[in-house]
């Protein structure tokens, strides 16, 4: 009984690990320097979950904010933060730095193809 239970646990864990590896989302990087996001425009595939990694190279704190994406993340100076976005339908999703919204702005373009 105990051996069967152990096998079941191992099998479940293996399936979970395999699925996790298979379902690992694509990563996209954005850098914040001098209160400007670079690149200011990224293109991601439609209907797919992706991981967005934001590198803050400024000496001040910033908050990545997007009403379109429903995301909000504080990024500390010289640190990085990650958020998951999607799956999203094709369209244009704007984001900005909450503390410096005039300069720190960008857009996520969700397309069915031509992903950079």
């Amino acid at each position: 009984m105990q051996a069967r239970l152990t096998k079941l646990i191992v099998l479940s864990f293996s399936i979970w690990a395999a699925f996790s590896a298979w379902a690992k989302p694509q990563e996209f990087h954005i850098t914040l320097k001098n209160h400007v996001f670079t690149p200011s425009q990224i293109t991601i595939p439609a209907n797919t979950k992706v991981k967005l990694i934001i590198h803050n190279q400024d000496d001040s704190i910033e908050e990545f904010d997007s009403f379109d994406l429903n995301r909000e993340k504080v990024i500390f100076p010289n640190k990085k933060g990650r958020i998951f976005i999607g799956p999203l339908p094709a369209g244009r999703y704007e984001y900005f730095g909450e503390y410096f919204p005039k300069t720190a702005r960008g857009v996520v373009i969700v397309e069915d193809s031509n992903v950079n």
């Binding site: 429903n70 995301r71 909000e72 958020i83 998951f84 999203l88 339908p89």
Partner: peptide
């Protein structure tokens, strides 16, 4: 949205 942001809860359209 906090849990969706860290991929604990899935996100639908």
């Amino acid at each position: 949205y906090l849990l969706q942001q860290i991929d604990v809860v899935s996100t639908s359209n």
